[in-house]
Design a protein around this nucleic acid. Structure first.
Length: 581
DNA sequence: GCCGTTTTCGGCCCGACTGTTTTCAGTCG
């Protein structure tokens, strides 16, 4: 886990924001933003590097390298502290509101003294904002809308942030003497896209050493409650974590109980009641005798209820009990089924790592194939040209030669692809003859998000009808907690995908998880195929795939539904999309 | 502040949209 890299990246991202808010040089802001991204995506742990080693990182020069060294020596960076002293933390928080950037945030703070989202909402309701230069009724409306969007995710965090904390806690607790078992439960285990608080479960005869270790974790900033069965803490980042310790022979029932969901548990308890049993976190009991029947493993608990073990990602009371009773639970796609990633970037556009490093990291994951899909020219900021794309292709072919021969099982084959931009009319960056020479084309919406419902639907359908477009990337384009999905008739899109042999992406980036579980369930009914992709912009992002797989499982997908679990020959047939040749 | 080279300073992702303004600043991807 490159944890110290994330810390430093967060620090420089904040510094960039503070420079921007205080009206500093825009290019300095950009430099720190770029450095933050590079550091976050860098393969080596920055806390182990010296000034010279740090300067190997792209966009890190002498000044930033020295700040990193200062950070690990003293725990802070004086330049950052100076700006922090000038601007209340709440002002930076304001810029998290969509449509509210650094300039407006600073104006609001300087003119009205507002430094929190709550104060800002009050000021808008009192119509105080519209007196400011550059602000009007529409601006107020947009900000209020942005606040609502921000708060719709409440205090929940994205799954990767929760997972990092949970895995860290588990690593620490499993070392405690007397800890027999230890796992995360709750919505995290069910693979939900956002997590409210983290539930950790441990089995031990004596809970005390575990509870104490838990309150003394480095990440613990506050102990909310401390008891023998349950202890709650808040981490330094404000995340609530509960630890429950149960006797080892209650493990199965407890894990089942604390994994949820509530709706699923109601159904399982109902089944227990019908059989004269009682199910609680302490076990499955006979009501009459009060005798404990089973509870050592989840499998035991489900089996005694007449059910097969139900994967946590299905436990939402969306038909899994009924399917279990009929013995028709799907054989869910697993991360180990994935043979390759079909949507990834390099530093030729906005990725952080060179082609060679991305390919090496993919090979490290044991992939049988791997597609490079950098951005196309119409995403102007990426400065792609035909020449650069073709030059990349030459290099991909060389690497394909090299990697294709490696290893026992035929090595890894490389596909040269592209992520096209679906323009407002449903067209893309290049004409057919240029597209024909790519091995694979992903096409995504990157602009004009606010098109009307019908136009947006048409746009998607036309893209599907393009004989060279294989995958619709991050179909709804939502960013969790920041941007809602586009307004389109998704059923029309799903039908078009099924009809034309176009796959829908399950984008695994924790900010996106797009399509989401409910869309997947719907789309699957049309017979659509899916691609679970990382959309990696750095070598580290390749590992995000686990979240996409979790989302796919929540959408009840099997291996056969997912094209990048297929052998390469079958995948290539699909990519031809019924074209001749 | 970084980078690349035209080697020591100039350029740095470009275009569109929105809401404000009355010619443009701010935000976004």
């Amino acid at each position: 886990m490159a944890r110290s890299n994330d810390e430093v990246a967060a620090l420089f991202a904040e510094y960039a924001d503070l420079i921007s808010i205080t009206g500093g040089d825009a290019f300095r802001t950009r430099t720190y933003e770029k450095a933050a991204r590079s550091i976050g995506g860098y393969h080596a742990d920055v806390s182990t590097l010296d000034v010279k080693g740090l300067q190997e990182i792209p966009n890190v020069g002498k000044s930033i390298a020295e700040k990193i060294v200062e950070y690990f020596r003293t725990g802070q960076v004086s330049a950052v502290e100076e700006l922090r002293a000038k601007i209340p933390a709440g002002v930076r928080r304001l810029t998290a509101i969509p449509t509210l950037g650094p300039k407006k945030a600073m104006a609001i703070y300087e003119e009205l003294g507002i430094s929190s989202i709550e104060e800002l909402a009050d000021a808008i309701h009192e119509e105080r904002l519209r007196d400011l230069k550059g602000f009007g009724p529409k601006t107020e409306e947009n900000i209020l809308h942005g606040i609502a969007l921000l708060q719709s995710s409440g205090d929940r965090v994205l799954i990767d942030a929760a997972m990092d904390v949970a895995e860290d806690v588990l690593a620490q607790l499993s070392k405690v003497t007397g800890c027999r078992r230890c796992a995360y439960a709750g919505s995290l285990r069910r693979g939900r896209e956002t997590i409210g608080d983290i539930d950790i479960l441990a089995a031990a005869e004596d809970s005390e050493p575990l509870m104490r270790a838990f309150t003394e974790l480095p990440a613990t900033s506050e102990v909310i409650a401390h008891g023998t069965t349950k202890t709650s803490i808040r981490t330094t980042k404000g995340l609530a974590v509960d630890l429950r310790v149960v006797p080892p022979d209650s493990w199965g029932a407890a894990l089942q109980y604390f994994t949820g969901s509530k709706a699923h548990n109601i159904r399982t308890r109902e089944r227990a009641v019908h059989q004269g049993l009682k199910l609680s976190e302490y076990g499955l009991f006979d009501v009459e005798s009060g005798e404990k029947i089973v509870s050592e493993t989840e499998e035991d608990v489900y089996a005694r209820l007449g059910l097969p073990w139900i994967p946590p990602t299905l436990r939402e009371d969306r038909g899994e009990i009924e399917a279990g009773l009929r013995d028709e639970l799907p054989e869910l796609v697993q991360e180990s089924d994935i043979r390759g990633d079909l949507h990834t970037h390099t530093d030729l556009t906005d990725g952080l790592a060179p082609l060679e490093e991305m390919v090496a990291a993919a090979a490290e994951r044991g992939y049988a194939y791997y597609a490079i899909t950098d951005h196309a020219p119409n995403l102007y900021m990426q400065r792609m040209t035909d020449e650069r794309m073709l030059a990349q292709r030459m290099r991909v072919r060389e690497l394909d030669e090299e990697y294709g021969r490696r290893g026992k099982r035929g090595g890894m084959r490389l596909l040269h692809g592209v992520e096209l931009n679906i323009d407002p009319d449903g067209g893309v960056d290049w004409p057919d003859d240029f597209l024909a020479d790519f091995d694979i084309c992903v096409a995504s919406v990157h602009s004009h998000f606010n098109q009307g419902h019908d136009a947006m639907t048409q746009r998607f359908v036309r893209a599907c009808e393009n004989p060279y477009i294989n995958i619709i990337g991050h179909p709804t384009t939502r960013i969790i907690g920041k941007r809602p999905g586009v307004d389109a008739d998704l059923d029309a899109l799903f039908a078009a995908c099924a009809r034309t042999g176009t796959a829908l992406e399950i984008n695994s980036h924790p900010d996106r998880l797009d399509l989401n579980d409910e869309h997947i369930l719907r789309a699957k009914r049309y017979g659509v195929k899916f691609a679970i992709d990382s959309d990696a912009h750095s070598t580290l992002h390749l590992a995000h795939l686990r979240y996409g797989v979790g989302t796919a499982q929540r959408g009840w997908l099997t291996k056969d539904d997912v094209i990048n679990t297929w052998p390469l020959t079958r995948l290539r047939r699909f990519l031809r999309k019924g074209r001749a040749g």
